[in-house]
Amino acid sequence: MSAPMPAVRIEGLCKDFGTTRVLDGIDLDIPRGKVTCLIGPSGSGKSTLLRCVALLEEPTDGYISINGDPLGFDRGPNGARVKLPARQIRKVRSRIGMVFQQFNLWPHMTAVGNVSEALVTVRGMSRADAEERARKELDAIGLGARAGHYPSELSGGQQQRVAIARALALDPGIMLFDEPTASLDPELTGEVLNVMRRLAESGMTMLVVTHEIGFAASVGSKIAFLDHGRILVEGAPGEVFAKPREPRIDQFLETYLDRGAATLL
């Protein structure tokens, strides 16, 4: 019996910045309809891995496929690595939505403008239809009343929720999150994590870089622990966090004691 095709398959992924190797042969499957959490110490390469999956960084070596379709690079006839044409890249990448640590909302557009913009420019919807769709997305995350506000008039948590709505409006098959709560005040992280929790319950495939160990342990179906550009441990939360543990993970969890990891110690 063959395993079902993963939503994302990463094989032998390497990334160099100049002469430093930041990702060193990553193999990872992201299962469909589940939440995969990437954890690891600062500088271990989590963001870089996520950005490679979004093709915001060009991998130095290795392959990524989305639903079986190669992303960015493919194996050529004689085993060579060939870059795919831009149109193919855009098509595969349109299945990916991304949420950034810094929200990255466009400051000159209202919440509705941010969510509807790509529906108009990329999907070719009429402005009116796009805004209606955007309002629905904003209602769904409880921001209907803030639709006409500019990002500078929203709290960090609200901005991040708008950013999630912006990505979801394009119906992505996979959502990538890079520390979505890391630049939020503690009392605002909850509202964003709740939105993500509900998204997970709806069956969205998610790849989440996070330092919220509690969230990872409770919502994640799969945890990958990254250290120095390699995946040290991967598996269900029960396996990764079960004692006896890899000493590096013990050390890491101690650092994040106050982030809901206490229960795992």
């Binding site: 915001l56 349109s94 950034f100 810094q102 990255n104 400051p107 790509a118 912006r166």
Partner: peptide, 14 residues
Amino acid sequence: VPSGLLEAAEMTGM
């Protein structure tokens, strides 16, 4: 212009 804003646009397929 912060590069993150441009990356966000790239990610929406613009």
